[in-house]
């Protein structure tokens, strides 16, 4: 049985063979700028519209990923992808150009780990030899879909997050690589009853806490088993709440916890509470954290991507924000 406990899948030998990242100007200018594979100096990325720009980012990330993994398109078995836009258009339109089967996934900002977990399961179960996962987000496309036109004068509060412009792709396979996808905990949808669109951190923290606690329970582990526990985009507000929630459950993560949304921007970059969006967790994990793992500073990490499953229509109909979090354990392979 590969299901351990209630919600955790344990994989036998699935490896993260290569990754690719592409980012926009704000992220390239941030503290992790040098770690990304492709960086654009302009938010349009040389395209005509924001949507095309996002699609280009995803395409570039995939191309770099396949190139680094030394794999041609014909050797791929399945493509799993998702993004933030309605009907997942970026993923669908990118898949249009790929000559292998495609499964579209939506988990809002948790899509990066959702695709990685499902991809690893497909590979581990023998349904695919190699799986490609990708996710993307773009500040302006998210802004115009979920909030207001980009040029509208709106004063944003300190709790607001700044959607990361970028895309991350990962290649999963059976061939032994440097990083092992060891386990994944699939989250439950948790609705804390909050309604503020400009404070997603508070809305998503309970979902993240639930998934992390369930992960520890299922695998009989504690926070000390991990060199790093990282959440996707809880931002400055949500990460403090998460630490408090985990402390109440008896898990102390103060020393080995971080949040991708806080790592991707410098504090002086006018990004309010930090980064968010599908790409936030993807580019930081695939671009920066795996490099740290390669250096040996991290042996085993738990990546918890959090997503707020809202739509602007539902918010206008006075519904609260349901949230989800998926966790994946990535281990460094020695020798």
């Amino acid at each position: 049985m590969k299901l351990v406990g209630k919600q955790t899948w344990v994989f036998e030998d699935v490896y993260l063979q290569a990754t690719g990242t592409a980012v926009g100007p704000f992220e390239a200018d941030g503290p992790l700028g040098e770690h990304f594979d492709v960086a654009y100096r302009n938010l349009y990325c040389g395209e005509k519209t924001w949507e095309l720009a996002e699609r280009r980012l995803m395409k570039e990330a995939i191309e770099v990923c396949l190139q680094k993994g030394n794999i041609t398109m014909d050797e791929m078995d399945v493509f799993l992808a998702g993004d933030l836009l309605n009907q997942n258009v970026t993923a669908n339109y990118t898949a249009r150009e790929l000559p292998f089967p495609f499964l579209c996934m939506f988990g809002a900002c948790s899509t990066s780990m959702e695709t990685l977990a499902v991809g690893a399961a497909l590979v581990d179960g023998g349904f695919a030899r190699r799986a490609l996962t990708a996710t993307s987000s773009h500040n302006a496309t998210a802004e115009r879909q979920f909030r207001y036109p980009t040029e509208l004068g709106v004063q944003k509060p300190k709790s607001a997050t700044f959607t990361v412009t970028g895309a991350g792709a990962a290649l999963i396979g059976r061939k032994k690589g440097r990083f092992r996808v060891a386990a994944a905990t699939i989250g439950r949808v948790i609705d804390a009853g909050l309604k503020n669109l400009l404070d997603m951190g508070s809305a998503m923290a309970p979902a993240a806490a639930h998934t992390i606690e369930q992960h520890f329970l299922d695998l009989h582990r504690t926070p000390v088993d991990y060199d790093l526990i990282v959440t996707g985009d809880l931002s400055r507000v949500g990460s403090i709440i998460l630490k408090e929630l985990l402390m109440e459950a008896g898990y102390d993560v103060t020393t080995n916890y971080n949040d991708c949304g806080l790592m991707v921007y410098r504090p002086d970059q006018a990004t309010f509470a930090g980064g968010s969006g599908c790409a936030c967790c993807a580019v930081v994990t695939y671009g920066y954290l795996l490099k740290e793992m390669e250096k040996g500073t991290i042996q085993r990490m738990l990546v918890v991507a959090t997503g707020a499953l809202l739509s602007s229509t539902m918010i206008q109909q006075n519904e609260s924000i349901p949230a989800i979090a998926h966790a994946v354990v990535i281990e460094a392979v020695r020798g």
Binding site: R144, Y148, P149, T150, E151, L152, G153, V154, Q155, K156
Partner: peptide
């Protein structure tokens, strides 16, 4: 300017003009 001024920029006629043109440009 609006991020600094808040309602000082949006509650005026200039904010109304901004709302029209920003939506027009965006789409």
């Amino acid at each position: 300017f609006s991020q600094f001024a808040g309602a000082g920029a949006t509650a005026l006629l200039s904010g109304f003009a901004n709302s029209l043109v920003s939506a027009a440009m965006e789409h």
